[in-house]
Design a protein around this nucleic acid. Structure first.
Length: 286
DNA sequence: CGGAGTGTTAGTCG
DNA sequence: CCGACTAACACTCC
C-alpha cells in the first residue's frame, strides 16, 4: 500500500492522538506479525508511554518511555485505525472491501489506550510487521537505509553518490532500492521518472549529471505534492480527516496504460521493469 | 474457475 | 557486493 507520502500522512494524523498516551493493553491474534516474542512486547510496550511519533522511510516509529521504539511497517496492505470512544476516527490504510468496521477479521493487533481508545492494525495480506528496537540502537538498526528524499540535505550530489555502486541496474530498480533512497515505491518512482523525462529501463551508469539533477527535483516535487494531497489512494481510502488521498487524480502515468500522455498525447505504455508493473511514455522519456 | 496482478521487501542464487 | 528472481499472503479482476 503506502509509500512515503501515505506513511507521512498517517504519521501526522496519528501523532496528536497518540502522543503522551499510555499503552494499557495489547491483543495479538497473529503472532507472526510480531518480530519479537509476544512476552517481549508485554514487557517493553505495555505500560509504557508514547513519547514520539515519527516516520523513517516507509516505517512509522513510536518512541516509548521504556527506552524502546516500536517500528510499524504496513508493507502492501497494512492499516492503522485509531478509534476514540467519543470521537470515532479512522486513520490510515486502504479499504478492505466490504469490511468497514473495526475490529474486523483482518484486525490482528489491537492496542488499548486511555479513555477507551484503540489502535487497530489490520492487514489482509499479513506482510506488515511490528518490531521493538532499543531507541539508542535505532541509528545502527537503520544504518543501511538510504537518505530521506524530502530532507534539505538530499541533493543531486547525494543521489549521484548513492547511485554509484549500482551502475548496472536500471534507474527504476535503483530508486526502488531502499538502501539507495528511502521512501519511494512503485507509484512515485514511475511518476518521478516521467517528471524527469527518464525511461525506467535506463541503466544508472548512463544517467548524466544533469539528469540526476532533474531527477532530484522531480522526486522532491512529486513527493511534496503527493504529501500535500495526503497521498494516493485506490478506491475509497479514508485518511484521518475522513477524506480520500487525492494524488490519484494528479498522477501522470501510474495506472494510465493506454490513456494519452498529458504532455504529448501518445498512449502510456505498461511493461515490467525490476519485476514491477511500470508505466511510461515512450516519447517523453529517454 | 484459473491465472495474473497488487502500493513491499527479505531471502536465495548466480 | 550486485542484481534478478521469488516467496510471503489474500484478494480482485479478467
Amino acid at each position: 500500500m503506502p509509500e512515503l507520502p501515505e506513511v507521512e500522512t498517517i504519521t501526522r494524523d496519528l501523532a496528536p492522538v497518540l502522543l503522551r498516551k499510555k499503552i494499557l493493553g495489547l491483543k495479538v491474534s497473529k503472532v507472526r506479525l510480531l518480530k519479537n516474542p509476544q512476552s517481549f512486547f508485554q514487557r517493553h510496550l505495555v505500560g509504557s508511554v508514547i513519547t514520539s511519533v515519527s516516520r523513517r522511510a516507509k516505517m512509522i516509529l513510536l518512541g516509548l518511555s521504556s527506552g524502546y521504539t516500536l517500528i510499524i511497517h504496513l508493507k502492501m496492505t497494512g492499516q492503522l485505525v485509531w478509534h476514540g470512544l467519543s470521537k470515532p476516527m479512522r486513520i490510515g490504510g486502504h479499504p478492505i472491501t466490504g469490511v468497514d468496521k473495526v475490529p474486523n477479521r483482518y484486525t490482528y493487533i489491537t492496542l488499548s489506550l486511555p479513555r477507551g481508545a484503540k489502535l487497530y492494525f489490520n492487514d489482509t495480506r499479513t506482510f506488515g510487521y511490528w518490531q521493538l528496537v532499543k531507541s539508542a540502537a535505532l541509528k545502527s538498526h537503520f544504518h543501511r537505509l538510504g537518505p530521506e528524499p524530502l530532507q534539505e540535505n538530499f541533493t543531486a550530489a547525494v543521489l549521484a553518490q548513492q547511485l554509484k555502486s549500482h551502475g548496472r541496474a536500471s534507474i527504476k530498480a535503483a530508486l526502488l532500492n531502499q538502501t539507495v533512497l528511502a521512501g519511494l515505491g512503485n507509484i512515485y518512482v514511475d511518476e518521478s521518472l516521467f517528471a524527469a523525462g527518464l525511461k525506467p529501463t535506463r541503466l544508472v551508469a548512463e544517467v548524466k549529471t544533469t539528469e540526476v539533477k532533474k531527477l532530484v527535483r522531480a522526486i522532491k516535487l512529486i513527493l511534496l505534492s503527493a504529501t500535500v494531497a495526503r497521498g494516493t489512494s485506490f478506491s475509497n481510502y479514508r485518511d484521518g480527516l475522513g477524506r480520500s488521498g487525492t494524488y490519484w487524480d494528479k498522477r501522470l502515468v501510474y495506472g494510465r496504460r493506454g490513456e494519452p500522455c498529458r504532455r504529448c498525447s501518445r498512449p502510456i505504455l505498461k511493461t515490467v521493469v525490476a519485476g514491477r508493473g511500470t508505466h511510461f511514455c515512450a516519447k517523453c522519456q529517454k
